[in-house]
Amino acid sequence: MKPYWDVNVLTGTKTAKIVEDPVQWASIIKKSIRPLYILGPDTVDRNIGDKLFLEYCLDVAKAGNLPICATAHVRKKMSEMGVETDSAYDIIEIINHLKDPEWQGVRKEGNHDLIMFTGVRCDLAERGLATLKHFAPHLKTMALCRFSHPNADFALPVIRKDTKWQEYFDGLVANLIN
């Protein structure tokens, strides 16, 4: 399946498994031991419908009790909203740490076994996912992004409509809570 952006078309053999069902997505997260949710600046620069993109993501983090790495300037909005982030590495720095299986993770409990991306600029996210695909075999990656990411282990299909995107978030939150 082609990702939304042409620049992210894969030249390679190992491509993401597309997970269309939020129930399945939630169950992958639930199975992980030390997940990490990476939030990029699109989450604070865009709305979905009338609501700030970030709010959907924070709902997911809360529902799944996921530690957050707020990249770029996401921390500012979070602190204005009164939410503390577990870590504020920038995107390249967090990926650089994740490569090392011995790294102790953002909560100093050991490296993460599942990484989820949302709101990272799509071309940059795809490069970061490529790094993890090649150099971090000890963890799985999920791109919770409506534009789809072939270099992740698990990706969404391209979701063109805002309403569908909102539905996916709602489904995910509901299933993470259960």
Binding site: T11, G12, T13, K14, I95, G128, A130, T131, K133, P137
Partner: peptide, 21 residues
């Protein structure tokens, strides 16, 4: 720190070679 743009090598006639992971 490397972020491959392409998972293959197409430099010589042995290839394409898949260098994934």
């Amino acid at each position: 720190f490397y972020a491959p743009f392409c998972d293959l090598c197409c430099n010589c006639t042995y290839g394409k070679c898949d260098l994934t992971a």
